[in-house]
C-alpha cells in the first residue's frame, strides 16, 4: 500500500518534471506565450474603450485572459496528452508499467499548472499595468482559494476528457478544438455572465470556469469577500468531487474498451 503510494507519487513527479522541462525548453515559446495573448486582450479592451465603459471591464478582460491560459492548457496539454503519447509510442509504456494512470495524469496536471502559472502571471502583470486595471483585493486568501479550487476543477475535467483520447483520434482532437471558443464565450471570459440570456446562464453553470472567473473577478476587482462568494466555493468543490472519480471511472472504462477493440496503440486515426 505504502509502496504503491510512494511509487505513484514518484510517477507523478517524473511526469511533472518532463512536462516542466519540455514546456520551457525553448525560450521563445515562453516569451511568445507570455506576451502574445496581450494582443488579443488589447483588442477586447479597445472594444470596451470604444463603447465608453469603465476601467473595471479592462480588469474583466485581463482576468479572463489569465484564466483562459489554464483552460487552453487543460484542453491541449492535459486532455489531448494521451493522443500525443499514442502518436509517439509512449502510451504503451505507460500502460504496461505497474503504475496508476491517475498518477500520470496528476503529474501532467501539476506540470501543466507550473508552466501555465508562469505564463498567466506574466499576462496578469503586463495586462494590469498596461490597462491600469483597478484592483480592489480585500480578501486575498479568498481569491487564492477560488483560484486553486478552479484549477482543481478544471484539471479534473481535463482528466475526464483525457480518457476520450485513449480511444479516439481526430474525433477527440476536433472535440477539444470545438471546446475552445464556445467555453470562452459561455463562461463569460470577457464579461460578467449575468448579462447572458437565462438559458445560456444555465449552460454556463455546467462549466467550472464560469464560477472560477466570476469568483475571482468579484474578489479581485469588486472587492467582495467570502460572505458573497461562498456559493462559488461550494460549486467548485462539488465540481471537483464529481469530476475526479468520474475521470477515474472513465479512464478504466475507456482503457478496457480500447483493449477489446485494439485501438490503444492505433496511430493516424
Amino acid at each position: 500500500m505504502l509502496d504503491d503510494l510512494v511509487r505513484n507519487l514518484r510517477v507523478a513527479y517524473a511526469r511533472l518534471w518532463v512536462r516542466v522541462k519540455g514546456g520551457n525548453r525553448e525560450p521563445e515559446w515562453l516569451i511568445f506565450d507570455m506576451f502574445l495573448p496581450i494582443f488579443t486582450l488589447s483588442a477586447y479592451v479597445y472594444l470596451y474603450k470604444m463603447l465608453g465603459v469603465g476601467a473595471e471591464f479592462a480588469g474583466f478582460v485581463v482576468i479572463g485572459g489569465t484564466m483562459l491560459a489554464f483552460w487552453t492548457n487543460v484542453l491541449w496539454n492535459m486532455s489531448a496528452q494521451f493522443y500525443w503519447e499514442k502518436e509517439t509510442g509512449t502510451l504503451e509504456a505507460y500502460l504496461v508499467a505497474p503504475i496508476s494512470r491517475m498518477a500520470i495524469l496528476l503529474g501532467m496536471a501539476l506540470g501543466g499548472f507550473v508552466n501555465t502559472t508562469l505564463r498567466a502571471v506574466a499576462i496578469l502583470t503586463v495586462g494590469s499595468l498596461i490597462f491600469q486595471v483597478p484592483i480592489a483585493l480585500n480578501e486575498p486568501f479568498t481569491a487564492l482559494l477560488i483560484f486553486f479550487l478552479t484549477i482543481a476543477a478544471l484539471y479534473s475535467l481535463g482528466m475526464l476528457f483525457a480518457s476520450l483520447f485513449l480511444l479516439y483520434g481526430r474525433e477527440a482532437w476536433h472535440t477539444a478544438s470545438l471546446l475552445q471558443e464556445p467555453v470562452q464565450f459561455i463562461s463569460g471570459s470577457f464579461y460578467p455572465v449575468r448579462y447572458l440570456p437565462t438559458l445560456l446562464q444555465l449552460l454556463a453553470s455546467l462549466v467550472p470556469l464560469t464560477f472560477g472567473l466570476d469568483g475571482i473577478r468579484r474578489t479581485a476587482i469588486s472587492g467582495e469577500g467570502i460572505a458573497q462568494v461562498w456559493p462559488h466555493v461550494i460549486a467548485l468543490i462539488v465540481f471537483t468531487l464529481i469530476l475526479l472519480p468520474l475521470a477515474k471511472l472513465a479512464l478504466n472504462f475507456m482503457e478496457n474498451l480500447g483493449k477489446k477493440e485494439g485501438r490503444l496503440t492505433l496511430r493516424w486515426q
Binding site: L47, Q180, S189
Partner: peptide, 19 residues
C-alpha cells in the same frame, strides 16, 4: 467555433452597450 468567437465579441459589445 467561429460562431462562438463571433458571439463572444458580439456579447462584449452587447454588454458594454447595456452598461
Amino acid at each position: 467555433r467561429p460562431l462562438a468567437g463571433l458571439l463572444m465579441a458580439g456579447f462584449m459589445f452587447y454588454v458594454g452597450s447595456t452598461v
